[in-house]
Amino acid sequence: MSNDPIHQFHIVNLFPVEIGGVDFSFTNSSLFMVATVAVTTVFLMMATGGRGLVPSRWQSVAEMSYEFVANMLRSSAGTDGMRFFPFVFSIFMFVLVGNLFGMFPYFFTITSHIIVTFALAMLVILTVVVYGVMRHGFHFLNLFVPAGIPAILLPLVVLIEIISFLSRPVSLSVRLFANMLAGHITLKVFAGFVASLGSLGALGVAGAVLPLAMTVGLTALEFLVAFLQAYVFAVLTCMYLNDAIHPGH
C-alpha cells in the first residue's frame, strides 16, 4: 500500500459531520485548508507586527508578496483592477501555500483535487461575470464581439469567443489540478522505485541511485511548479478580471 502513488490523494474523515444526510466531514483536506489559511495569516501578521520602517527579513517577504501580486494585478487590469487586490492576493497565497504544503512528505495537497481548483476557478469566473454585468450591464456582452471584425465572420467569431469564455473555468481548474496531481504521482512513483529496488540486495541498492537522483531533481521541479501554477492561476485571474473591467477589447 505504501507504494501506491494514488494513496496520497485519499480523503480521510477526521471528524464526521453530517447535515441533512450529506457528508460534510472534517477531513484531512479540510485540515490542510485550515492549516494553509492559519499559517499564511499568522505568518503575514507576525511578520508585519513590527511595522518596521526598515523591514526585517520576514517583513520583507510579506511586503514582497504584497507588491508581487499588486504589480501583477496593476499591470494586467490597470488601477481600476486594484479593487480586486484582496481577492487576487487571497487566491494567490491560498494556492501557493496549499501547493507548497503538498511538498512536505505525508502532507495532503488540497489543490490536487479537481473540485477545489474548480471551485476556485468558478469563484473567479463568477466574480468576473457578476462584476462585469453590474458595472457595464448589457455592454458586458461586448466581450464576445471583438472590434473590427467583418460582418460575415462575426457569428463565427462570437461563437468562438463564447466557447473560449466557457472553457475558461475548465482550463483554469484543470491546469492547476493536473499539474499538482501528475507531479505528486511522478514523485511518488520514482520514490517507490528507490524503495522497491533497495529491497533487492546490493545490486538493487546500486541501481536505486538513479531513481533517487531523479526524485531529488523532481522535487526541485515540483517546488518550481508549485510556485509557477499559483502564479499562472493568479495571472489568469487578473486577465479575466481585466475583461470584467474593460470588456470592449
Binding site: V22, T27, T40, S90
Partner: peptide, 21 residues
C-alpha cells in the same frame, strides 16, 4: 467527498479572504 471539500473550502477561503482584506 465533494460536499465536504466545497464546504470547508468556502469556510477557510472565506475566512482567509476576510482576514487578508
Amino acid at each position: 467527498t465533494f460536499p465536504s471539500q466545497l464546504l470547508w473550502l468556502a469556510i477557510t477561503f472565506g475566512a482567509f479572504y476576510y482576514m487578508m482584506s
